[in-house]
Nucleic acid binder design. Sequence first.
DNA 1: TTATTTTGACTACAGTTGTAAACTAATAAG
DNA 2: CTTATTAGTTTACAACTGTAGTCAAAATAA
Lengths: 143, 143
Amino acid sequence: MKDAKNVTITDSEWMVMRAIWTMGHATSRELIDAMNELEGWSASTTKTLLHRLIQKQAVAQHGRSRPFTYKPVVGEKESMAAAADDLFDHMCAMRAGSTIAGVIQSRELSRADIANLQAILAEKAKTAPEEVQCNCLPGDQTC
Amino acid sequence: MKDAKNVTITDSEWMVMRAIWTMGHATSRELIDAMNELEGWSASTTKTLLHRLIQKQAVAQHGRSRPFTYKPVVGEKESMAAAADDLFDHMCAMRAGSTIAGVIQSRELSRADIANLQAILAEKAKTAPEEVQCNCLPGDQTC
DNA sequence: TTATTTTGACTACAGTTGTAAACTAATAAG
DNA sequence: CTTATTAGTTTACAACTGTAGTCAAAATAA
């Protein structure tokens, strides 16, 4: 069973996934046009990326006659979560908080997003530790 | 002037950077040992990575006689912020909020981190839009 | 039904990344 | 001083990425 956690989507593949996710399903022509407009890519480039995404089972080809329709197999939300987790997994746990702060500051968030984050934080505050340990070196050091 | 925004640090290079950042400065021997223990890497692997980091000016070699000392040139905080921004830049703006929510839920945060995030959110709430537009396709569509 | 266009499959190719061996120049040990 | 050891530099090499050209099969137009 392929899910977002097993699939690594590269930077340029992300662009194609975003288009497919937003369209819900699309023909290669639609994707080629969108990518050409968005990124200036040649038709071949989009085709290659689409192929690679099919191989890694992030996208599936549907229909029995040309032109085929392409649909996402992995979800956008899960893929984004997996990518974000992957990033934070490679960074110092002690500094995750301030990194998240930076992200929040630089992104546009809706009122609902903010309310949601506030609720999550309020809940998390109940059991939050006084400080988070640095996990960058072997053995435990206070950083 | 090299700063975090101009340097792309790869996944394995990150591991070395984390060690250097945490130690403040280190000899290659110290790094080789740390990386061996942490990741099981051979001495060569760490040496190569260290070299590449020097080439891309993320790390500098100090001292006039062997063994040299290696120090970070780019800051940890800035590099983490740059990496996080880079990630979110490639993803749908509309879903940044829920992705951040996922990250917050999966990470350990200190009381101080949480308080800081709450303050930032409270401030941000004052001017937050009702909703954030999807920016995945050319032209504006409601996603 | 032949010619044309489209779509999809296969090939290409340089640059990056992960991983490490080999070689060379210092330095330390005897 | 000679030898052994360590630190640093070069080379290697396959897999993965970004970007795209070529070819063949299918569909559409003439």
